[in-house]
């Protein structure tokens, strides 16, 4: 088996303090993520899947348990070190893109580099945009881009620091199905190049593009298995095109 990237042991997250008012979002969750995996974390709204991703991605801190990343116990790190971890080892893609307004695609992608020690910022950002196929949109502002394009900028931003793992929280949630497919296809391509990817989704259809599906219900992992029916997003898009063509021919 490949390198172990992340190991979560008995992670729990409880919101609120009182006995009656506290809500358990995660209840003793344990899991491992290995290099090169494409994982879908699935669950209904409120199941705790996003909380899990936020904790795995060091955006949030668990209330209990241990999180080990690259043999470092990140759950014990301070804010400073966590920021460095997010900056160098993790990339994020959000449902609502979260691009800075009035800031062009290139500069949005440059953002993580600004907080790193790198110096060839623009080159790296251009390369990242290139890899998501947007080299011709570098100087467009977010509101001049389509939803799919905005999400691709966000993915480029997630990739620009060459992270070990990319987390995507409902990356297709704000997109039409075709743009969604494009994003999934892009993620699969990145995975094929060796990038570890974790997608959080509530849609079964989307989860089918991952190699491993983790099901979460009420803060607990209820199933964690390899997806034997993994579909290629590229192929789905091809059929979509055929269907559309068929519709038009009719």
């Amino acid at each position: 088996m490949n390198n172990k990237l992340i190991e979560a042991i008995n992670i729990s997250k409880i919101y609120g303090r009182g006995v009656d008012t506290s809500v358990t979002a995660l209840d003793n969750v344990s899991l491992e993520i290995h290099e090169g995996e494409f994982i879908a974390i699935m669950g209904a709204s409120g199941s705790g899947k996003s909380t899990l991703m936020n904790i795995l991605g060091c955006l949030d801190k668990p209330t209990g348990g241990t999180l080990i990343q690259d043999n470092v116990e990140v759950s014990k790190l301070g804010d400073e070190e966590l920021a460095a971890v997010r900056n160098k080892k993790i990339g994020f893609v959000f449902q609502s893109f979260n691009l800075l307004a009035r800031t062009n695609a290139l500069e949005n992608v440059e953002l993580p580099l600004l907080y790193s020690d790198r110096s060839n910022i623009t080159d790296l950002a251009q390369k990242a945009l290139d890899s998501v196929g947007l080299s011709d949109r570098m100087h467009h502002l977010p509101n001049e881009l389509s939803g799919g394009q905005q999400q691709r900028v966000a993915i480029a931003r997630a990739l620009v620091n060459d992270p070990e793992i990319v987390f995507a929280d409902e990356p297709t949630g704000n997109l039409d199905s075709r743009s969604g497919m494009e994003i999934m296809s892009l993620l699969q391509k990145l995975n094929a190049q060796g990038r570890t990817i974790v997608v959080v989704t509530h849609e079964k259809d989307i989860a089918q593009y991952a190699g491993r599906i983790i099901q979460i219900t009420d803060g607990k992992i209820t199933s964690d298995k390899k997806n034997i029916n993994k579909i290629s997003a590229e192929e789905t898009m091809a059929t979509m095109t055929e269907t559309e063509a068929a519709h038009e021919n009719r």
Binding site: D79, E80, A83, A84, R86, N87, L100, P112, Y115
Partner: peptide, 16 residues
């Protein structure tokens, strides 16, 4: 606040 959250998500430290 959203902007601050995003900057932190991509690795900005509190100091930054």
């Amino acid at each position: 606040r959203r902007e601050i959250g995003l900057r932190k998500a991509v690795g900005a430290r509190k100091k930054d």
